[in-house]
Simulated scan of single mutants.
Amino acid sequence: MLSKPFDGFMACEKDPREAHTILFGAPFDSTTSFRPGTRFGSAAIRQESYGLETYSPYQDKDLEDTAVCDLGDLELCFGDPARALDAIQDQADAILAEGKRPFLIGGEHLVTLGAFRAAVRKYPDLHVIHFDAHADLREDYLGTPLSHACVLRRCWELVGDGRIFQFGIRSGTREEFRWAQDHVTTHKFDLDGLETALTAIGDKPVYFTVDLDVLDPSVFPGTGTPEPEGVSFSALRQAVTLVCSRANVVACDVNELSPHYDPTGVSTAVACKVIREMLLALPPR
């Protein structure tokens, strides 16, 4: 029988009714403050995922054995962040309503806010684990509150103090770092303190957001706002595996790949491998 070839993330072609995790893409970068291009990230990740194996020797697990479905990219209103966020929230709402875990692939980091709004509506005691080079805690960026530079500030407005744990942060304004001292838990420069945060959070629901520029740009140059002195791939791989296997992750995302800034394709391969390891570490719901 003739059939349409599967063009989603490798091996993530299970029936959505049977899947515990649902991938979808948000190709949006209208608020990018430096170099645009993350709108092409999710499509590049899907295409290049076939350059990797479905099997992880790190975890001795295979994506072929997991119940994950990739729904593909949303069609978003380019140039209108509010409408784009509404569309992302609607998709995440629908996934959560079916008892599934949404896994968003960006796109710029602002896309997190759409999925986060859906998750916090279902889980009012939601906590956040945030890997990033940038604090993303500005009140506004050039007068707009809907910017990738403000996304964690907008998330804080929904959950309040003591719920957000940031790691790898090495860039931000003086005001952001001072504000953070009173409202969020920020671990600068590296991923140290993750075990302590996981213990503090316990079994409370977690939204896990990974901005790939947490990596050192020598490992991951394909991003719009590279920040030197980031973490290694090995450190990030171990950390995402720990979070996904230990925390009660009810929704998550990976974002900020701009594939054309790294014509070697290595950055895209790194993004694919991070996503593979996360998917394999996430338990069935």
Rank of each mutant, 00 (worst) to 15 (best):
D132E: 08
F6H: 11
P284L: 06
D93Y: 11
E175I: 09
F9I: 11
G72R: 06
F116Q: 11
E75Q: 13
V151P: 12
L23K: 03
S42Y: 03
V274F: 02
T264L: 05
G8Y: 09
P16S: 08
V120C: 13
C77E: 15
L152Y: 07
S30V: 04
I275F: 08
G230Y: 00
L236K: 01
S267P: 12
S49R: 12
D132T: 00
T144L: 07
D62P: 05
G265M: 08
R154Y: 05
S234H: 13
F78W: 12
T186E: 07
E18G: 10
V214P: 05
C244W: 01
W156V: 02
G160S: 02
A92M: 05
V219P: 00
F233A: 11
S267V: 04
E108Y: 02
A97G: 10
V243T: 07
T196D: 15
T209K: 01
G193I: 03
T112H: 05
I164V: 13
S33N: 05
P226V: 01
D70N: 13
V219I: 13
R276Y: 08
E64Y: 11
T264Q: 06
E18D: 15
D203E: 15
R246A: 10
K61R: 15
A94W: 05
V243D: 03
S218M: 12
D60Q: 15
Y50M: 10
V219F: 00
S245R: 11
A271R: 09
L191T: 06
F165C: 09
C272L: 08
S267W: 00
R121A: 14
E75Y: 08
A84I: 03
S3Q: 14
S258R: 06
G79D: 10
D125P: 01
H183N: 14
R276D: 10
H260D: 14
D65N: 14
L96R: 01
G51R: 14
V250A: 02
Y50Q: 12
G168P: 05
L142Q: 14
G25H: 09
A247E: 06
A92E: 06
K188R: 13
F208T: 02
V219K: 00
V254Q: 05
L279A: 11
T225M: 13
T225G: 11
T241V: 14
P284Q: 08
S258C: 15
D29V: 03
P27K: 08
L113Y: 12
Q181S: 10
V254R: 06
L126H: 04
K61P: 04
E64V: 09
E277C: 11
A43C: 08
